[in-house]
Nucleic acid binder design. Structure first.
Length: 132
DNA sequence: GCCAACGTTGGC
DNA sequence: GCCAACGTTGGC
């Protein structure tokens, strides 16, 4: 399953990821987002979205590895350590407005709970972001 | 277990 | 920088 990962570009942008080649996607606190991270599998596709500044889907990445570290108390759930690598910049960036107006995103979890920083995408949504 | 207060996220 | 929408926390 593909995913959309949100990032504030002034903290960590897709350019930073291109420079680093790969990175550990940490700093996620929201429980729903953590559940999604735990379910990620090596080789799955991710779209990087820039929130705040930019507000557009800008790049492609791939899951390199998912490690489930022991829980950090008081949490009883394992701590997902997801490593991703940069693939390429999107040929055609998709702005928030374009995403919101796209048919494939109607009723999507992304806009029902827009604060979620890690969102599963349908294959159709992923294809639209990359090729649409 | 309820609910008010507080924190976080992200659009504007 | 402000605020709306939620999620989380803590007192009761």
């Amino acid at each position: 399953m593909p995913y959309l990962l949100k990032s504030e570009p002034d903290k960590y942008s897709f350019d930073d990821l291109l420079r680093d080649k790969e990175t550990v996607w940490d700093g996620i606190k929201n429980n729903q987002a953590l559940i999604t991270l735990r379910n990620m599998k090596k080789g799955e596709d991710c779209v990087i979205y820039h929130s705040n500044e930019g507000k557009a889907a800008v790049g492609l990445a791939k899951v390199v590895s998912v490690e489930l570290a022991p829980p950090v108390p008081p949490s009883k759930m394992t701590t997902p350590i997801v490593k991703i690598k940069a693939v390429k910049r999107l040929k055609c960036e998709k702005t928030l407005d374009e995403i919101r107006n796209a048919g494939v995103f109607q009723g999507s979890i992304m806009f029902r709970q827009f604060r979620l920083s890690v969102v599963p995408l349908t294959q159709e949504q992923f294809d639209w972001l990359v090729h649409g």
